[in-house]
């Protein structure tokens, strides 16, 4: 329990630190967003705006009232972010940032969660089989493939898939989240269309990351297969299936949970590039759009949303780890990393 309290405090602190960081980036970075917006406004208005009006514009866009003392700016900013007010977009005709990004969040989470799940399950299964057949042709071959795919960046795979399966063979759509003729909702057509559109981005991440999981699982399984308790289990006459699942499987997968925490962050980072490549309007896609349009409020909003999502994911994984591994009381799961 104590551990959960500690972890919760840590997660809250992380969110707090991230918002602080984005305040620093917007407000204090020389040549950063605040300075840039000011220069823009002065230039665009050709001097017709008063200093006060400029400050007001900046305040409404970024939630930072630049003429207040710094600490007031900071407190105001923190308060509005916590209220879910991320400012207003510059590019999307002064829409609130949350209205631009909000609808994109589920799509990004869908891509990431699905890829992570498929890659993990695929990698773990493959790795376990490799370990059971250690040294066989299957093992050597799979190790080679895993090493190779693990060395290929996901965006290279994405570009290849897009080129061949998307453009040349026209098997998959080359952009969007679902076909425009379907109506979003719980109907088969829409779900199939969403899966069809998500297939290539998901496949890219899966192909790029299952090898790492497989190699990891293989190593862990081989280690567990050499443990004394496995030998004792066999002598006790336990069925092979129970040994594979309850002994090898569980003890080999548990240490990988830590890797899962890191993978969550990695996946969300990857989503930005992938959504750009596949023109898939998720949070990352809007983030890049915003950067190119110098739409800082949207950019920072996307950053905060992604980071908070990762923090929540890591928090859930961390807390559930203590629950599935009896040894992890008191946590410190990341010590071993």
């Amino acid at each position: 329990m104590n551990y959960i309290v500690k972890r919760t405090a840590q997660a809250v602190f992380t969110v707090f630190a991230v918002i602080t960081l984005s305040f620093v980036i917007i407000r204090l970075l020389p040549g950063g967003p605040a300075d840039y917006l000011r220069a823009q406004l002065i230039q665009r208005s050709g001097g017709s705006l008063t200093q006060e009006q400029i400050n007001q514009r900046i305040a409404s866009q970024t939630n930072i009232a630049v003429d207040e003392p710094l600490y007031v700016q900071y407190v105001d900013y923190m308060a509005s972010i916590l209220r879910g007010d991320f400012g207003t977009s510059v590019w999307y005709s002064n829409e609130p940032v949350i209205a631009v990004l909000g609808p994109a969040i589920p799509w990004t989470v869908f891509l990431m969660a699905t890829s992570l799940f498929i890659a993990f399950v695929l990698g773990v299964t493959l790795g376990a089989f490799m370990a059971y057949r250690e040294g066989s042709g299957f093992d050597v071959g799979s190790t080679g493939v895993s090493l190779l795919t693990n060395s290929v960046p996901y965006y290279v795979i994405a570009l290849l898939l897009l080129t061949f399966l998307g453009y040349r063979m026209e098997l998959f759509p080359t952009g969007g989240q679902y076909a425009s003729e379907t109506t979003p909702g719980l109907n088969l057509e829409f779900v199939l269309s969403a899966l069809h559109h998500g297939a290539l981005p998901i496949l890219s991440l899966v192909l790029a990351s299952f090898g790492g999981w497989a190699l990891n699982m293989r190593g862990n399984s081989i280690r567990v297969l050499g443990e004394d308790y496995l030998r004792v289990a066999r002598l006790r006459g336990l069925p092979e299936r129970r040994i594979a699942l309850r002994y090898v499987g569980r003890n080999a997968i548990l240490p990988m949970y830590t890797g899962l925490l890191i993978a969550i962050g990695f996946m969300f980072g990857g989503s930005i590039i992938l959504e750009e490549i596949f023109a898939y309007p998720g949070v990352g896609y809007y983030m890049i759009q915003a950067i190119n349009a110098r739409d800082y409020p949207v950019m920072m909003g996307a950053f905060i949303l992604i980071t908070v999502a990762v923090t929540i994911g890591v928090f859930i994984a961390d807390v559930t780890y203590g629950w599935i591994d009896p040894r992890a009381e008191g946590g410190g799961t990341r010590e071993s990393y």
Binding site: Y229, V232, R236, R246, Y247, L254, P326, R327
Partner: peptide, 22 residues
């Protein structure tokens, strides 16, 4: 080495019942 003879992620009870069942 007794400690390494037990599955670290299973309760002692589990070891007894699984042996009996097997």
């Amino acid at each position: 080495g007794a400690l390494s003879s037990f599955n670290p992620t299973m309760s002692v009870r589990g070891h007894f019942t699984e042996t009996l069942r097997a």
